[in-house]
Design a protein around this nucleic acid. Structure first.
Lengths: 253, 253
DNA sequence: ATCATAGTCGTCTGCCTGACGATAAACATC
DNA sequence: GATGTTTATCGTCAGGCAGACGACTATGAT
């Protein structure tokens, strides 16, 4: 590493951007905020903001998440908590041209949350909305008036695509899909998470056998619920296992 | 995102650090450079340096890789080229305390290269060496005099550990292990790559069946070699497939 | 000639998955 | 209250793949 001359290093702004995913009405949705100023004024973007001078990257991401959604990020190693969301670093985007005003390096994070009430607008975002990821990624860029739609501001379309792909692949070999569920959930609800994230239809019987047969994935709570209609279903909590071995296979295309 | 006041954003230095891995003498090795100045003077560290004002992150990583090793990073999507190495972003490290002098955010990259002649010292590194990753990660921190050993400077021990874990898991489900091999290689050489990276012993017969039976993984070149002794072995090139499905399973612990 | 080394082809068994039949327990409707 | 609908759960069966391991081949070393 070069000798540091603090007056000589090239200055960068560092931000965090968030890909916040949830499953609503059988669709994978992401949080989008409407930009209130130039550039890209009026366009939709991912929530985010500057990293403060004495703040860790993960702390900055957790703070932004909390400001935008009220969600409280929890350590993946720790116990699930009320209103807790999974939060992990995704990737870093630093193309010199990605922000027309100045050199900005953005450390994108991925958050997975259960279905929530309407998002609250963050301090500086005019409005915040959940939108299906397809409408945010769609190259066509149409959508109902006022509803979030592509193209997103800056390189946020690419960041969102990377986050969605990370989520899709990670639920294959980890128990992360439970992060989309409330603290207690049924096998059917978990299956609908997989179906929404992957955009496929899964066989309920094979899915049930797989998830209940994987040690440490699900822990029965003893209760049952009929909130989905039909025969009452057992309730489960997420077990301690984080890695699924063998993995849950995503069906062929 | 907040309105930008270019004079108000907190200034950061942005660097790239490199985890460069190769397989030498049946061991997974990483490139380490000896620090010539404070802090951590005399300690070993990962190669890296500042991102230039108009340089993309991946370009900065490729430039540093070339400066330290002469390796030419190639796009994973493109064709393999002579002296080419796989290069991908790993993760970003931004703890406010990670560099005692100033706020530095480092975008770590992971490079995988075939076995090379001795590394050449980069411009500002006093010396550069390959060292087995265990000796660089070993908490004990012993080693022969002058040989790279733990603990590494800054948080480079953590970065290296993350890079090694990424490599270990990625060769499971991708054809990335071929990045450790010369352009033409035998099944046995590829197996020794897996054995070195995972630190296990694999059954030659099952391994042979698996890799030759996965479509697009290996392409026979027609030639044979006896450079490993024993019966001549067929030579292969890496095929077009990048994802292995089903994956190559890492043996249980 | 014999041995050591490394590569390659087969066989067998057990596990997992996908496809799908059958039964169970709730609610809605007639 | 009988029937249909919905969802959950258990079972069966065949095919595929991986681990264990036997057998044979082709080279160099002694």
């Amino acid at each position: 590493m070069s000798p540091y001359d603090p007056s000589a290093f090239p200055p960068f702004a560092v931000t965090v951007d968030l890909v916040v995913l949830t499953v609503r009405r059988h669709a994978l949705c992401a949080l989008a905020v409407r930009r209130g100023e130039q550039p890209f004024q009026g366009r939709w973007a991912l929530p985010g903001g500057f990293v403060r001078p004495d703040e860790d990257l993960s702390s900055a991401a957790a703070r932004e998440l909390s400001e935008e959604t009220g969600l409280c990020a929890h350590d993946p190693a720790g116990p699930a908590q009320a209103n807790g969301a999974h939060l992990e670093q995704l990737a870093t985007y630093g193309d010199p041209e990605r922000d027309p005003r100045m050199r900005v390096v953005s450390v994108a994070h991925l958050a997975l949350a259960p279905d929530l009430p309407a998002p609250r607008a963050g301090g500086d975002a005019h409005s915040a909305r959940w939108a299906p990821v397809e409408s945010l990624l769609d190259k066509g860029g149409y959508g109902r008036e006022g509803e979030p739609s592509a193209p997103l501001a800056f390189d946020h379309g690419q960041i969102l695509a990377d986050g969605v792909e990370r989520a899709r692949s990670k639920i294959e070999y980890s128990s992360l899909a439970t992060a989309f569920c409330p603290p207690e959930f049924t096998v059917g609800e978990l299956r609908r998470v997989y179906e929404a994230v992957w955009g496929v239809v899964l066989d309920p019987r094979n899915f049930h056998r797989k998830v209940t047969g994987t040690p440490g994935f699900l822990v029965p709570t003893g209760g049952t619920t009929t909130r989905q209609g039909g025969r009452p279903a057992q309730l489960f909590r997420a077990g301690g296992a984080t890695l699924l071995n063998p993995p849950m296979l995503r069906p062929e295309v």
